[in-house]
Amino acid sequence: MTMDLKQVEQLLSKYWEGETSLSEEKQLQQFFSYGEVPAHLLVYRDLFVAQEIILNPDLGLDFDREVLDKLDTSENSTRWNFVRIAAIGLILIVTAIGFFKLNNTTNTQPIAQEDTYQNPEEALAETKKAFAMMAVAFNKGQQPVMNIVKLDKTNQKVAKAFGRTSQLPILNE
């Protein structure tokens, strides 16, 4: 919808007189918004462009970007919220476990009282018995090793006695 300059100037003078109809004003707005405005009419451009914007609110070029920005920040903030929730959850869990553990240690007091022996002498005697039991097993396990050591020593003695430096073949079997 193009208008030539004459028409525009006619409409303009009509506009200044206040005689333009709404549709004529619209034509002017469109001309100034989208048409090629000659230099001497540039002064009026802002007026009509402003009208055009006010009357026909457009999403505008920035709209998408703004919305996207907003989306971005809202996505960000939900992410932040999640982190915050997770952190709170973690703190809760840690506190709960700390509490639980504390409770547990206070619970071990009764367990400590559940000690089989109330008398330290008796407890020591039992501990000794336990160690003795382990000692028997330990030594049983070590006895064959000791025997080999002993055998080795004997062999060395025999070897020495016979003037040999090498071990007797019995060990290698």
Binding site: T108, I111, A112, T116, Y117, P120, A123, E126, A130
Partner: peptide, 16 residues
């Protein structure tokens, strides 16, 4: 037969 000797008891034993 269950025998349990606690840390506490060992601490007491340590003083013997």
């Amino acid at each position: 037969t269950r025998v349990s000797i606690s840390k506490k008891m060992f601490e007491i034993i340590a003083n013997l």
